[in-house]
């Protein structure tokens, strides 16, 4: 299972979630995606995106402005 890392820092809505969607779309079921973003809107967005698309949000950690999420493709 492949792991992809995405640096989404400096981007603002809607680009972070577009980049996550594009990367996950290319991957295979079970692939893991780790993304770092410093847009404050990313946290609620990633929750809503995972809920709607059915991919699993394994973790969400915050360090300063940075929000790191780990998603597994369904």
């Amino acid at each position: 299972m492949a792991k992809t890392t995405l640096d989404l820092k400096g981007m603002s809505c809607p680009m972070p979630i577009m980049k996550v969607a594009a990367a996950v779309k290319k991957g295979a079921s079970g692939d893991v995606f780790e993304a770092v973003c410093d847009d404050a809107g990313f946290e609620p967005d990633v929750h809503a995106w995972c809920k709607e698309t059915g991919h699993t949000l394994n973790s969400l950690t915050k360090a300063g402005k940075d929000i790191t999420v780990v998603i597994t493709k369904k």
Binding site: C13, P14, I17, M18, A21, A22, A48, W49, E52, T53
Partner: peptide, 11 residues
């Protein structure tokens, strides 16, 4: 277009 892109990202 922000809403359109968001909806496209959500499949």
């Amino acid at each position: 277009f922000i809403i359109a892109n968001g909806a496209l990202a959500m499949g």
